[in-house]
Measured scan of single mutants.
Amino acid sequence: MASQGTKRSYEQMETDGERQNATEIRASVGKMIDGIGRFYIQMCTELKLSDYEGRLIQNSLTIERMVLSAFDERRNKYLEEHPSAGKDPKKTGGPIYKRVDRKWMRELVLYDKEEIRRIWRQANNGDDATAGLTHMMIWHSNLNDTTYQRTRALVRTGMDPRMCSLMQGSTLPRRSGAAGAAVKGVGTMVMELIRMIKRGINDRNFWRGENGRKTRSAYERMCNILKGKFQTAAQRAMMDQVRESRNPGNAEIEDLIFLARSALILRGSVAHKSCLPACVYGPAVASGYDFEKEGYSLVGIDPFKLLQNSQVYSLIRPNENPAHKSQLVWMACNSAAFEDLRVLSFIRGTKVSPRGKLSTRGVQIASNENMDAMESSTLELRSRYWAIRTRSGGNTNQQRASAGQISVQPAFSVQRNLPFDKPTIMAAFTGNTEGRTSDMRAEIIRMMEGAKPEEMSFQGRGVFELSDERAANPIVPSFDMSNEGSYFFGDNAEEYDN
């Protein structure tokens, strides 16, 4: 993207840094990872977990959730003011799984939030270390993106479920800051804005008074975040219109849905970061690795190297396929839920299948599930090659597409044709070009129609051997075009429920 120079890199967003050079960025990201790792080690000690239990991804998720809940100030305040039966607002906890007599047992633990905050700050040299908290939120978000298709949420806001490739980060909490905003897809931002506008339509006082002023500035800020994701002048001009509207209503909703559809071809720039579970960072720190000293990046080879040398386990339900569970977590670790499966298959070195073909449910185990038949197995999170994460949407291309997802959002900077089903997408653009945004709409449609099938995206960008740390010898991959490109292809993934 041309304006790259004016933006802070995501590592800076990730670490609240002012302008830093590459070495400083690597050190501050490393410091953040160190903090998460030290916190995780301490929690495993508190909970008396064995090494194996500490490497269980379900335990990692519970521990991450506990610290996120302990620092969720708004919710904590709300819980104190609106006490609900049987919930102690000062405590947080969740299921911890232990191996007892050759069987997995679930144990519900409860801790004072104050105590968890103390352990977290102690692991982070006394700081609140917001960057580390956001990092864990993005890992949870990436896992949700890989596990669930947001059909219901899309339909509720009037969008087409086939636009799911635009929904990265749709389950990120509001408090995820600049680093969170960077990884949100165009569809996620559109959905947040539509929800806001709908509230304004239904509630006369939404934009009024002292609160209304705050609401208005939040609305304009979200519009600017979305505008910054678009790469064409016409899309940005249309966002200006939406932002400046005196009284946002149905016309703005129409414009936003139009823009979301246009992003299936004229893709937005959305950041991709490899955020790993805390149970990967903990053992690495415990083994003596100093992330701050060595430096770390979320968008280069580092996460690949770390996963190459990590042992992570997962509980497996009786009829689940461990290899499929591994694929789910591998995609989440690489922030690749909406990437082209052919690119992923090449990088991973084994075939990556669409969601609907995987015999696996989510990673988390519900409290009512029976533990008797639970097994555990090693997650295979290694890769054959590594590639640089991208934040450009890439230019655009036609490809055989599917009944489910009709476009992709690249996660890796790797040369390819970008699949999208042009006739299906263009069919949504018939007729409606009147109104105050008509010239911009016409211009956007013209650009979409001009998108050429034979153009290559990320020209000359390749993948790298894991021994090639400096990215000196790019390998331009070859793809098996007979395979499906979309992950949520004609899909039956479970729906995400809060």
Rank of each mutant, 00 (worst) to 15 (best):
L266F: 04
A493I: 02
A403F: 04
A332N: 09
P83D: 00
E24D: 05
V186F: 14
R106A: 10
L344G: 09
S482H: 03
T215M: 06
Q308P: 00
A337W: 08
G200M: 09
Y10C: 03
V414D: 00
A2S: 00
S413Y: 05
V109S: 06
R342P: 08
I63P: 14
R384I: 01
C164K: 08
G5M: 02
S376V: 11
L259Q: 07
V352H: 02
N368C: 02
M191L: 15
E80K: 11
G37A: 10
A178R: 11
M196N: 08
R389Q: 01
N334C: 15
G35Q: 02
R348M: 07
L259C: 09
S402V: 12
S269F: 01
D302Y: 05
M222W: 08
S269H: 11
V285I: 11
V329D: 11
T6D: 01
G268D: 00
R261S: 06
Q4V: 10
R441W: 07
K229I: 05
E455Q: 15
K91T: 01
C333M: 15
G282D: 11
G180I: 06
F429W: 04
R236H: 04
T146A: 15
S60H: 00
L49S: 05
K184R: 09
I365F: 11
T390K: 07
G356L: 10
K452S: 11
E81R: 08
T23P: 01
R446D: 15
V329W: 13
Y296G: 07
C223A: 15
S402D: 01
S407C: 15
E380L: 01
V352P: 09
M32V: 14
H324W: 07
N395S: 14
E252I: 07
L166M: 15
G300Y: 06
P161D: 02
M137H: 06
K48D: 09
N309R: 15
S84N: 15
K48L: 11
S478V: 03
L264W: 13
E210H: 01
L307F: 12
R106S: 05
I316D: 05
P83N: 13
T437S: 15
I36D: 08
M136G: 07
F304K: 03
N321H: 13
Q327S: 07
F346P: 03
K91V: 02
P161T: 06
Y148C: 05
T396S: 15
N492A: 10
G209A: 05
G431E: 05
G295Y: 11
E73Y: 00
H324P: 09
I225M: 11
G212E: 03
L379Q: 05
R117W: 04
S69P: 11
A237V: 01
N397Y: 00
R102N: 04
G268C: 13
M239R: 00
R436Q: 04
T151Q: 09
I425W: 01
R243K: 15
G288I: 11
K87S: 09
S69R: 05
I406H: 13
G94R: 06
Y296M: 11
G460P: 00
R208E: 05
T390W: 02
F479A: 12
L172V: 09
E64H: 10
R19N: 06
F458M: 02
R267E: 08
L315D: 07
D497K: 00
S60N: 14
N319F: 07
G94V: 02
R152P: 07
Y40T: 08
V29Q: 04
S392A: 14
V29P: 05
R174L: 03
Y313V: 05
K113D: 08
N247I: 06
E254I: 10
E114D: 14
L381T: 15
A178H: 09
Y281N: 07
A332R: 05
P322S: 11
T45P: 12
V476Y: 12
R26S: 15
G460W: 05
S297T: 15
V312N: 13
L256N: 13
E434A: 12
T92Q: 06
R199T: 07
I406P: 05
Y111A: 04
E494I: 12
V476S: 00
S310Y: 02
R174E: 10
A233C: 00
M481P: 00
R213C: 03
N250Q: 10
S486K: 04
T396E: 00
S367K: 09
N334R: 00
G295M: 09
E292N: 03
V183R: 04
V270P: 01
P95W: 08
T430M: 06
L166D: 10
V183K: 05
V109N: 00
E469D: 13
Q231D: 01
G450C: 15
D480E: 13
N432A: 14
R389V: 01
G295C: 10
S392F: 07
M43P: 02
N21A: 03
R246K: 06
L315Q: 06
S269E: 03
A286C: 09
I116A: 05
N76E: 14
E495P: 02
N211C: 12
N59R: 10
D101F: 00
M191E: 03
D421G: 00
Q241F: 14
F71M: 01
T437W: 01
Y52S: 13
R174Y: 02
R74D: 14
M448Q: 15
K7A: 00
G5T: 13
S69W: 04
E14V: 05
Y40P: 05
F304L: 12
I96C: 09
R195W: 10
A337P: 10
A387C: 08
V312R: 00
R195C: 11
N309P: 01
A233G: 07
P283T: 12
D497N: 13
Q398V: 05
A129T: 13
A22F: 05
I444V: 14
A471G: 02
S60T: 14
M43K: 14
M43L: 14
R121T: 10
K422F: 12
G187E: 05
A387S: 15
G209F: 12
P83K: 01
S314I: 07
R317Y: 02
P95T: 05
A451W: 13
R19G: 00
W207P: 02
G209H: 07
R221E: 14
M191W: 10
E369V: 08
Q122P: 09
W330Y: 07
L276W: 01
E80F: 12
I475T: 11
I201K: 07
S482R: 05
D127N: 09
K103Q: 07
V285P: 11
Y313S: 12
Q235H: 06
C279S: 07
D160C: 11
I253K: 05
Y111T: 15
I33Y: 03
T215L: 07
S478K: 09
G393M: 03
R117H: 10
A471K: 01
I33P: 01
R416W: 04
E449G: 08
M196V: 13
G169H: 12
L133V: 11
Q459E: 14
E252N: 10
I225P: 04
N334L: 03
S245P: 15
G35H: 12
S413F: 10
F420P: 00
G349M: 07
N473V: 04
A181N: 04
E484Y: 00
G209L: 07
L49Q: 09
I445Y: 11
T134C: 14
E115N: 09
G249Q: 09
I445W: 08
L193E: 11
V109E: 13
G288N: 08
R195N: 04
R348S: 10
A251S: 04
Q58K: 13
V242F: 07
K273P: 08
F71H: 09
G35A: 13
M167P: 02
L61Y: 04
R267G: 06
S314E: 11
E46I: 11
M481W: 15
G450K: 00
A336S: 09
N247E: 06
A323C: 13
S457C: 00
G404K: 09
N202G: 10
K98T: 13
R216N: 07
M448E: 10
A428D: 00
G356E: 11
P410W: 00
L276A: 08
T62E: 13
E107G: 03
I116Y: 01
V299R: 07
N483F: 07
A233F: 03
V186K: 06
T171V: 11
A493C: 02
F291S: 14
Q459C: 00
Q409I: 13
C275Y: 03
E339M: 08
Y78I: 12
V414T: 15
G394V: 04
A336N: 14
P83L: 01
T130D: 03
Y40Q: 11
E14R: 03
